[in-house]
Every structure is written in structure tokens, then in C-alpha cells.
């Protein structure tokens, strides 16, 4: 059983899908409510992993993932093998866009419009909103975005619904290196299943 900590509500099901795809069972997903709240807790989740494994998902927000990781884990003196910090490059929305066919199908947008290399997008969330703003489905246009630039009233619900029901993690991992590595690393977390819950 693995515990997950994420930045925001819209990251909840993405993280759950990744961990489940990696062959682990999810015990709980904890939403920090912003990276400012999540960041100071990262070294603490490492300590808490002595009892049950914790995986923390954090967006790189287009910063260099290596430097960001070094900054976030500066407070960790000894890494627990049951702890993992996964940095989504550039953000979890890029991971969702990486499954182009699934995304096109669910959000009713032409697959050809979806960028082939979502990790290179300067702001994947804006790209996602822009795509949904021109969706063929009026429901998607009205629920997911406000004028194609800002998140709409049901943004979180729709993103989570897509991530939990339609998103193909295998497909997405083949287009996103940070996602592929996240899956690989979470698969290796020792004792996660044996420790029960």
C-alpha cells in the first residue's frame, strides 16, 4: 500500500493512476493545497516512509528538474528506500497530454492538434485549456475552461475523471520521459505490497 501526496486537487487521479499502473496499491492520496504547502512537507514524508511508503508528486513548472529536486530535498539527510519524489516535467497536465489519442477522444479535440512532445511545452496547462476551449463538445468547452485561458468550473472534476477512467498511462509514458521514469521508480519501491496497510 502506497501513500501519495500531491500539490492540488487536479493532480489526485493522475497520481493514483500512475501508482496503480506501476503495480502498487494506493492507500490514500493527500492533497497539500499548493506547492507552497507541499514543499516544506517533502522531507517529512521521507521520514514518515519508515512506516509506510510515500510517493510525492510535484510539478517542475518548467524549472530544471535536477536543480528543483536538489532544492526540495535539501532537508533530507538520509533517503528512505520507501520514499520517492517524482517530478512531473513540466506539470501533470503534460503527462495527460502525452496520451494523445485518449486525450483527443475524451476531450473531443483533433489528435493532430495535440503537441507530440508535451514535456517541451512552456505551459502544458495553458495548452490543455486552449485545446479544450476549442473542443467539439460544448459541455467540455463550458466546463473545463473559461474563454480557453482559465480553468472552468468543473476543471478539476473533468481532469480527474479523464485521469481515472480514460487515460492510458502506458501510451503517455512512451511520450513523456519524466512519466516513464516515475513509473519505473515506483515499480521498484520495496516492501510496498508486503507492508500491507
Amino acid at each position: 500500500m502506497i501513500n501519495i501526496a500531491v500539490e492540488g486537487d487536479s493532480d489526485r487521479e493522475v497520481a493514483r493512476a500512475v501508482v496503480t499502473y506501476a503495480g502498487q496499491r494506493v492507500h490514500q492520496v493527500r492533497v497539500a493545497g499548493g506547492k507552497n504547502k507541499l514543499d516544506p512537507l517533502i522531507p517529512k514524508y521521507n521520514v514518515a516512509s519508515a512506516q509506510f511508503p510515500w510517493v510525492v508528486f510535484r510539478d517542475s513548472d518548467s524549472q530544471c528538474p535536477k536543480l528543483l529536486r536538489a532544492r526540495l530535498t535539501a532537508g533530507i539527510s538520509s533517503w528512505h528506500p520507501q520514499f520517492s519524489l517524482r517530478i512531473a516535467h513540466s506539470m501533470s497536465e503534460a503527462w495527460l497530454l502525452a496520451d494523445r489519442d485518449g486525450f483527443a477522444d475524451y476531450f473531443r479535440v483533433p489528435a493532430a492538434r495535440i503537441p507530440r512532445d508535451p514535456e517541451e511545452l512552456p505551459n502544458a496547462k495553458q495548452t490543455l485549456l486552449g485545446l479544450c476551449g476549442r473542443s467539439r463538445s460544448r459541455t467540455i468547452r463550458e466546463e473545463v475552461t473559461v474563454s480557453g485561458t482559465r480553468p472552468g468550473p468543473l476543471y478539476v472534476t473533468r481532469i480527474n475523471e479523464f485521469a481515472s477512467t480514460a487515460w492510458n498511462v502506458a501510451e503517455a509514458a512512451s511520450a513523456s520521459e519524466s512519466l516513464r521514469r516515475a513509473v519505473h521508480r515506483i515499480r521498484q519501491i520495496p516492501g510496498a505490497i508486503a507492508s500491507g496497510g
Binding site: Q28, R30, A50, Q51
Partner: peptide, 24 residues
């Protein structure tokens, strides 16, 4: 017992409690 690790790590008490009682 199940939250000893989180308490030892000094995670916020509200987070620890929510993990126990929040509807899933």
C-alpha cells in the same frame, strides 16, 4: 498504530487526522 510514522515525521496533525477520517 497506523499513523506512528507520520507523527514521528511531524506532519501536520490535521493532515494525519484527515488521512484517518476523510471520506475517500
Amino acid at each position: 498504530a497506523e499513523v506512528q510514522g507520520e507523527l514521528a515525521a511531524e506532519l501536520p496533525i490535521s493532515d494525519v487526522v484527515n488521512g484517518l477520517i476523510a471520506p475517500h
